[in-house]
């Protein structure tokens, strides 16, 4: 994937996040959707802008760390009583 295509995906994912928030969706469902979109954006930046896709072993390490972080964020975000 070229950096230009990665940029187009980032724009689309950002627009989707803002649109979802503007629909009035709130609470746990909003958190789940926008954090999933942020996760996808972070993977794109790591792999395409920072070129980790060229180093698959290192990319897998980053992907695991990012996954654990996003799961922790999501857990805290949906834990609101």
């Amino acid at each position: 994937m070229s950096v230009t295509r990665a940029w187009a995906w980032l724009i689309a994912l950002t627009a989707t996040s803002t649109a979802v928030a503007a629909t009035g969706l709130s609470g746990r469902w909003l958190a789940l959707v926008v954090l999933a979109l942020a996760w996808a954006k972070a993977e794109l930046i790591l792999n395409r802008y920072l070129h980790l896709a060229q180093a698959p072993n290192i990319a897998r390490g980053f992907a695991l760390g990012l996954a654990l972080f996003m799961l922790a964020l999501t857990g805290l975000a949906v834990a609101i009583p």
């Binding site: 940029w7 980032l10 395409r48």
Partner: peptide, 9 residues
């Protein structure tokens, strides 16, 4: 993200 794209280019 657009700024990042310009830096990547």
């Amino acid at each position: 993200v657009t700024s990042g794209w310009l830096a990547a280019l």
